[in-house]
């Protein structure tokens, strides 16, 4: 179970605002996070990953406290080891597709399986600049899974993929998630598509509301 109760200041166009989240996410399930633009969905994922620090609150994952402002507890991102799919993919320009996955794991068999899920077998030696937008996005998903994380945070992970590819990937990813007993939080504007993939939905309101 992920239990979160945080308050984080965010800077909007001309003023300071805050997001306040108090909820819990079911373990080993996929939860879709929805909300209007600027509601703080990406910030929420970054707070959970430890990349952004809230001003107040607590965060615990499966009973382990990752963040507690009052007690001064704040696990570093590398200690949390959440898999994260970034909106801008955040691929490493100098690494080939296979090197991206090798950076996360040395398990060759697992790497082959990930490449198969992403249908990227032909592009193992390609660097990001030689991949299309959709291929880059699939690589970003596979890289986030390469460390076999227990918690996967996905920020608009399917925005550059066509619907048939999304369906194929979702089916294979769901199987992998079950095997890894993985909890997944997914932010997406393609609600209709990701609804089929999700077990729960959490709605984030506009800041200040």
């Amino acid at each position: 179970m992920i239990e979160i109760n945080i308050r984080k200041r965010i800077r909007t166009f001309n003023e300071l605002d805050y997001i306040q989240v108090k909820t819990s996410f079911m373990p080993r399930a996929v939860t879709q996070i929805t909300g209007p633009s600027g509601a703080g969905k990406t910030t929420l994922l970054k707070v959970i990953a430890g990349l952004v620090h809230p001003e107040e609150g607590t965060l615990s994952v499966n009973g382990e406290v990752w963040f507690d402002r009052a007690k001064g507890i704040n696990f570093r991102p590398r200690e949390r080891k959440t898999g994260m799919v970034f909106q801008d993919y955040a691929l490493f320009p100098h690494m080939t597709l296979r090197q991206h996955l090798l950076y996360g794991t040395r398990d060759e068999e697992y790497i082959e399986r990930l490449i198969e899920i992403g249908q990227l077998g032909k592009f193992c030696k390609h660097k990001p600049r030689h991949l299309s937008g959709g291929q880059q996005q699939r690589l970003a998903i596979l890289r986030a899974l390469s460390t076999k994380p227990k918690l996967l945070l996905m920020d608009e992970p399917f925005s550059a993929l066509n619907s048939s590819l999304i369906e194929d990937m979702m089916r294979d990813l769901k199987t992998l998630f079950n095997e890894l007993q993985l909890t997944c939080l997914i932010v997406s504007h393609q609600q209709r598509i990701t609804e089929a993939f999700s077990d729960f939905t959490f709605s984030l309101d506009t800041p200040g509301e």
Binding site: L51, P77, R78, K81, F86, A90, F92, T147
Partner: peptide, 11 residues
């Protein structure tokens, strides 16, 4: 984000 991606991979 590329540094952040590396940190989330446990580096």
């Amino acid at each position: 984000s590329i540094s952040q991606a590396s940190y989330t991979m446990g580096k």
